[in-house]
Design a protein around this nucleic acid. Structure first.
Length: 571
RNA sequence: CGGGGCGUGGCGCAGCCUGGUUAGCGCGCUUGGUUCGGGACCAAGAGGUCGGGGGUUCAAAUCCCCCCGCCCCGACCA
């Protein structure tokens, strides 16, 4: 490809509406343009990267035995009504009608569509197992699209669905996909972690998220360097503490203290000079319409996904101030677990607490030396606090490491949720009709592109790994008006193309500095710079990532470039 | 949905508070020339319904109201 013909409008300045590096750089370097909130034009450079990402995905999915299909983006409403998700999926789904008044949705995911296909065509155990995937656009009307490609309303996803005669076989495929995903992200040169995850809207029994480690990630994860345990904080389990021996003997008398206008844990801690971890934080949640009190240690945060799961609830939310007063008869900010008219569920972190501070149930007062069991009843101890770095690993006890990550892949073992709802069955060896057991597996293709940038950039621009770079090499003649330089560059360009590389030649009549800036910004991994030293028979090979330069004889330029790429890939 | 911010040539911004001639600046673009190893310089140009609508006023980019778009924070610590 010749740069003079390439539609890659680069910008000197970052767009005003971009916040995170991947968004700024992808726009600046001419990979994407915003069309509207959460909607992006993808320009040729962006398409090149996406195609490379898709190529790796296809190769690995095919190798794993999956087969590609293309399903409509327009989903008939009936299927979603049948699965019960037409309303359950909610406002995130874009719905519309055709001229006949028939309802459709723009597919946010395709369990219904694929299950419909398979239930019609698959009748016997002999047709199973089956793993079908597609790579295409998905639509989700996000509450708040943000961070460029990271959370867009239209995006490209690879979604795969597998079908099995048994739970065991579905599990086998689950791990097959786990391995496949690991290979996919490794091949892309990304630093990632597979973490145990919540199953969320999709449902199913267990799942893993593949997270690309990056500070700007929306997700948090913890992992154990020792035993390999890794989980999303939406899922990570806390170690259940022992009830302290003879704790009753330590109990002191409750003492009521005046705490005028002191509400927040931070304020209480300072005012009473008590560490946050000896204060009870009491929250009122509305769990599927019913109020419950949730107690956690003062220095902990409630992880709402864990809470939702602990109650097997459909919907949970914090109570409003009015609701709190209505259901508890106590003022917000001074809630006491004592004599609460609603049940108190306590997080594991409350178990070891003795003589702690809690609200007094009346304005401007707290209590010291409160003890669960003696002063109030705990309905049940549940694990609902967010696990943080430094806390013990639930598997081996080693302190956990905490990182932020971008979810680029998610695999689920679905079980029979959809096959039962949609009556997708097969006949087994004994002539018995059974529901098909399913799994599903997604990769956010456009998000991978953003995540890759988020993980690989510097002050000069993007630094692509060779595997997904839009071009593997750029040949830069520093002055195209100099015949010797131009001709040498053209020769090397042809040679590199003949070696099968994706190569760009910057044949623009521009100053060298201008070309260097663009090459760095776009992030092409290897630059072959053809300058004045051609007269001495030499050109320069520069590695974008490290800035290392090597002078090589013209004849070796192509082979040395190839070697350089090899080295970059093996790292 | 709640809160905050922004909207001025293609891009990034100033001007607005305190209304007053031709609405500025940098980048980019066009033409000519000089340059040519880290986003050159000189000269001459083109390009704007100041997001939209309504209002106040002799006069509105500027003040008021409504709407639209975009961004950020939040929808959590009782």
């Amino acid at each position: 490809m010749r740069f003079s013909k390439l539609f890659a409008p680069t910008l000197k300045e970052s767009p005003a509406d971009a916040e995170i590096p991947s968004h700024k750089l992808l726009v600046r370097a001419g990979f994407i343009r915003k069309k509207a909130s959460g909607l992006y034009d993808i320009l040729p450079l962006g398409v090149r990267v996406l195609l490379k990402i898709e190529k790796i995905i296809r190769e690995e999915m095919n190798r794993a035995g999956a087969q590609e299909v293309i399903l409509p983006i327009m989903h008939p409403a009936e299927l979603w009504i049948e699965s019960g998700r037409w309303n359950a999926y909610g406002k995130e789904m874009i719905k519309f009608e055709d001229r006949h008044g028939r309802s459709y949705a723009l597919g946010p995911t395709a369990e219904e569509m694929i299950t419909d296909l398979v239930r019609k065509e698959v009748k016997s155990y002999k047709d199973l197992p089956l793993n079908l995937y597609q790579i295409g656009r998905k639509f989700r009307d996000e509450i708040r699209p943000r961070f460029g490609l990271m959370r867009a309303r239209e995006f490209i996803m690879k979604d795969a669905y597998s079908f099995h005669t048994s739970d065991e076989d579905a599990e086998r495929e689950y791990w097959n996909m786990y391995e496949t995903y690991s290979r996919i992200f490794s091949r892309m040169g990304l630093k990632f972690k597979a973490v145990e995850a919540d199953t969320g809207e999709i449902g199913g029994s267990f799942s893993h998220e593949f997270m690309v480690i990056a500070d700007t990630g929306e997700g948090k994860l913890v992992f154990c360097e020792k035993c390999g345990y890794a989980a999303s904080t939406e899922k990570a389990e806390a170690v259940k503490p022992e009830v302290p021996e003879s704790r009753e003997s330590l109990f002191k008398e409750i003492e009521k203290v005046s705490t005028p206008n002191v509400k927040r844990i931070e304020e209480v801690s300072n005012f009473l000079n008590v560490p946050k971890n000896n204060i009870l934080k009491l929250l009122v949640y509305i769990v599927d319409g019913k109020p419950v009190a949730v107690a956690v240690r003062g220095d902990k945060d409630v992880e709402e996904t864990k809470l939702k799961n602990a109650f097997k609830a459909k919907e949970i939310r914090l109570a409003t101030e009015e609701e709190i007063e209505k259901f508890t008869g106590q003022p917000k900010g001074f809630l006491s677990p004592i004599n609460l008219p609603i049940p108190v569920y306590a997080d594991y972190s409350v178990i070891p607490l003795v003589n702690f501070v809690a609200g007094a149930g009346e304005k401007d007062y707290h209590l010291r030396n409160v003890n669960w069991g003696r002063d109030f009843k705990v309905e049940k101890f549940i694990d609902v606090a967010e696990v943080k770095g430094g806390e013990p690993c639930p598997k081996c006890g080693n302190p956990l490491t905490e990182k932020r990550g971008i979810e680029v892949g998610h695999i689920f073992k679905l079980g029979t949720k959809y096959s039962k709802a949609m009556n997708a069955t097969f006949v087994d060896e004994n002539g018995e009709e059974k529901p098909i057991v399913m799994g599903c597996y997604g990769i956010g293709v456009t998000r991978v592109m953003a995540a890759a940038v988020e993980q690989n950039y510097d002050e000069n621009g993007i630094v692509w790994t060779p595997e997904i770079a839009p071009f593997e090499v750029i040949v830069i003649p520093v002055n195209v008006k100099n015949d010797e330089i131009r001709e040498t560059a053209e020769k090397i360009y042809e040679e590199l193309k003949n070696k099968g590389l994706d190569v760009l030649i910057d044949d623009r009549n521009a100053r060298p500095g201008f070309k260097f800036k663009d090459a760095d910004l776009i992030g092409i991994p290897v630059q072959v710079i053809v300058g004045k030293k051609v007269s001495e028979g030499k050109v320069e090979i520069k590695v974008r990532k490290t800035g290392e330069k090597a002078e090589v004889p013209i004849e070796e330029a192509a082979s040395r470039t190839l070697e350089t790429l090899w080295e970059l890939q093996s790292k």
